[in-house]
């Protein structure tokens, strides 16, 4: 098995607020992420696909194809957007790194035509990231 990873960056704004909680609770739980005007990050996304290299092309999955999938599914949807208001898949969810990573997994998994999606790692800052993968599948 070979693991192929492609990286991309996008910039977006968000805020953390749960309407089911009081203003004080929101402030206490989410701290400065609760600022009603939002704030932003440069996100770095690492997408890992696992598979056997095709004997004819030597590729697990054509990088060009993966790049197009990422451009269409992630960059166009999330880059320079306000995640709370402009990304339908995040409606009703707090756009934390954990939740965005899961949304990205669900967007990408059905589009990977060769190999299988192995891991999604989303960095919100260089010191904070979330990993998403299938339960029981780990490594690399």
């Amino acid at each position: 098995m070979v693991y192929l990873t492609r990286k991309l960056e996008f910039s977006a704004s968000h805020l953390y607020h749960n309407p089911a909680l009081s203003a004080e609770e929101n402030k206490r739980i989410f701290g400065k992420c609760n600022n009603p005007h939002g704030h932003g990050h440069n996100y770095t996304l690492e997408v890992t696909v696992a598979g056997e290299p095709d004997p004819v092309t030597g590729m697990v999955l054509d990088l060009k194809e993966l790049k197009e999938i990422l451009e269409r599914e992630i960059t166009q949807r999330m880059d320079h957007r306000f995640l709370n208001y402009e990304v339908a898949e995040l409606k009703g969810q707090i756009p934390t790194c954990e939740n965005i990573a899961r949304v990205i997994w669900n967007l990408l998994e059905p589009k990977i035509s060769k190999g299988r999606l192995h891991k999604v790692r989303l960095y919100e800052t260089p010191d904070l990231y979330a990993d998403c993968f299938r339960n029981g599948v780990h490594g690399a």
Partner: peptide, 14 residues
């Protein structure tokens, strides 16, 4: 969420 996905959070300290 019962979708068979596992989420991990990574954080760096110095």
């Amino acid at each position: 969420m019962k979708d068979g996905l596992k989420i991990e959070l990574g954080r760096r300290y110095r």
